[in-house]
Amino acid sequence: MTGVNEEGGAPRSWRVPPVHIAVKAGAAVVVATLAAVSSGDRQFLLLAGVAAFGLAALALRDVLAPVRVAADAEGVTVVRGYAGRRRLAWPAVAAIRVDERRRLLLHTRLLEIETADDLFLFSFFDLGADVHDVAADLERLRRRAASRPDG
């Protein structure tokens, strides 16, 4: 996460923490090793191979597009798809909110950035920061952009 200047609308960005990338890559290596040493069991080999591939794909995505959300006075850039990006001007952003759900023992919080035709969802694991804090920072930048004389 980059710093912010409280008086101005300094650019901000939120990224996948490097430790999360390392954990995914390490898990992919461990699962691939398990698959290699148990090549006699075809079902386990297939399951472990698919799991290793999935973990490696997630780690690669995090390497290719580590910054999930970046914002400045003009708008917000979000990751779209596997590693693409989409730039949204502030007037195109319909809502910024946090969705909290509790089910059984799970408590999930997702940052939602909504436009007229899309909804972008980000978790703590995407942003490396509390989603409430990110939502507040984005709202601050959005309000500043709306209150600018030229905006």
Rank of each mutant, 00 (worst) to 15 (best):
T2W: 12
T2R: 15
T2N: 13
G3Q: 15
G3F: 04
G3S: 11
E7V: 09
G9P: 14
P11A: 12
S13Y: 06
V16R: 02
V16S: 01
P18L: 03
I21P: 12
K24T: 11
G26D: 06
V30P: 09
A32I: 08
T33C: 12
L34K: 05
V37A: 12
V37T: 14
G40Y: 04
D41H: 06
R42H: 09
L46S: 13
L46Q: 07
L47R: 05
L47P: 09
G49N: 10
V50N: 03
V50S: 09
V50Q: 01
L55M: 09
L55Y: 08
A56P: 05
A57E: 08
L58I: 04
L58G: 02
L58F: 11
A59V: 06
A59Q: 03
D62I: 08
V63A: 09
A65Q: 03
P66Y: 05
A70G: 11
A70K: 09
A70I: 11
A73M: 15
A73I: 15
A73R: 10
E74N: 15
E74W: 05
G75C: 06
V76H: 08
V79H: 02
R80P: 03
Y82V: 14
G84R: 15
G84W: 04
G84Y: 06
R85A: 13
L88K: 13
L88P: 01
A89C: 09
A89E: 13
A89R: 08
W90K: 03
I96P: 03
I96K: 02
V98Y: 01
R101L: 00
L105P: 04
L106D: 14
T108W: 08
L110T: 14
L111H: 00
E112H: 10
E114M: 01
E114T: 09
E114N: 01
A116P: 00
L119H: 12
F120Y: 10
F122L: 05
S123I: 03
F124T: 08
F124E: 06
F124P: 07
F125I: 14
D126Q: 00
L127R: 03
A129F: 00
D130S: 06
V131R: 02
H132G: 13
V134N: 04
E139A: 15
R140L: 13
R142S: 07
R143Y: 02
R143N: 08
R144F: 00
A146E: 15
S147H: 13
R148H: 15
